[in-house]
């Protein structure tokens, strides 16, 4: 990133069920969010127990231009002062990604601006830069969301290497599935952690999957099954008990957080990290934030995590990532639902 240049990027995000647009300014290396608008479809998908791709895409089509328009108005930036357009091109739902990519391409063509194809996962990392704190490398970064659980090594601000990932379910997916099997609703993350606050984390002894393994990979499929088996030991009538459900949630959340903490710390030690970063939707989980922060500080390392509203899907992080990315000709913009780091 070149210093002493003032650039403003319009970010567009539509990977899953959030339609988002943001304007982010970078002045000599300091980031400033001028506008950050997120329209969440979560209420629409609630009754289906998860995101329905077709419905998500239709809603993106409906909302994307009004959201971009709103972001522009809020930021008071004239389009002629925008230096480029950034858009998430994967990973995500193919039908959702297409809406953002097509919109970004059209605007880039119309306004004659460079366009930046952004990897949504990379953007979760760059959300940490919006804090404007100095970052010491190497950094070990945990990205944890509904679709991903990965550890990334950053040697400098542009060199990324995937250290490990989940071998089956993502952590956020495990929250959704546990929420569903306890009939608590969707999205599982916030519901299960709210229940967990009122429960006893030691009530059930759930496994800590792969915590002792020598590698850094994760696995959450077996943990969800363990919660299922534990719940099946109770009669349907007993399972209605708030206390019992709270205890199951608390014990489950404790297991997830412990595994995430242990693997991240292990990787940080192995790679001699100076910084630990936490991002992605599940990074909004308070217990995870506190646990990882405490442990990181104890080790004398720097801990960074975006504000909760910049952990869940947003376009400010997409715009932030553009400052570290080369533009792509609009003719070559392609979406990839399975894009990896």
């Amino acid at each position: 990133m070149s210093k002493n240049v003032n650039r403003i990027i319009l970010g567009i995000e539509s990977s899953c069920d959030e339609t988002a647009a943001a304007l982010v300014e970078n002045q000599g290396g300091t980031f400033k969010i001028l506008a950050n608008v997120v329209w969440s479809q979560v209420k629409i998908h609630q009754k289906y127990g998860g995101v329905v791709p077709e419905i998500a895409a239709r809603n993106h089509v409906k909302k994307i231009l009004p959201i971009i328009d709103l972001a522009l108005k809020k930021s008071k930036v004239d389009k002629k002062n925008i230096s480029g357009i950034a858009v998430a091109t994967g990973p995500g739902l193919i039908t959702s990604l297409l809406v953002g990519a097509q919109t970004a391409k059209t605007l880039a063509y119309l306004w004659q601006k460079p366009i930046y194809a952004i990897n949504h996962l990379q953007a979760h990392l760059y959300a940490n830069w919006l804090n404007n704190q100095p970052i010491k490398f190497p950094a070990v970064c945990l990205i944890v969301s509904g679709g991903h659980t990965e550890l990334i090594l950053m040697k400098n601000q542009t060199q990324l290497k995937k250290i490990s990932e989940t071998l089956d379910d993502a952590a956020g997916e495990a929250f959704d599935k546990v929420s569903q099997l306890l009939k608590l609703g969707y999205p599982g993350g916030p519901i299960v952690s709210a229940m967990a606050e009122r429960g006893d984390a030691k009530a059930f002894k759930f496994p800590r999957p792969m915590i002792q393994n020598n590698n850094f990979n994760f696995s959450f499929s077996g943990l969800k099954t363990a919660v299922l088996y534990a719940s099946q030991k109770f009669s349907p009538k007993k399972l209605k008990s708030y206390k019992l459900k709270a205890n199951l949630c608390a014990s489950f959340q404790q297991a997830v957080v412990e595994v995430l903490r242990a693997k991240t710390i292990k990787a940080a030690k192995y790679y001699n990290a100076k910084t630990i970063m936490l991002s992605g939707g599940v990074a909004a989980n308070q217990l995870l934030r506190q646990t990882l922060e405490q442990k990181t500080k104890k080790m004398g390392l720097k801990f960074l995590t975006p504000k909760p509203e910049l952990c869940t899907d947003n376009a400010a992080m997409i715009a932030a990532a553009a400052f570290f990315t080369k533009p792509t000709p609009w003719q070559k913009i392609k979406v990839d639902p399975n894009l990896s780091l």
Binding site: G92, I94, E165, T166, D168, A170, E173, K177, P337
Partner: peptide
């Protein structure tokens, strides 16, 4: 490659 759950995006290729 690691084959992990496609629940979130429904399909992986």
């Amino acid at each position: 490659k690691t084959i992990n759950s496609p629940t979130f995006i429904l399909m992986k290729i």
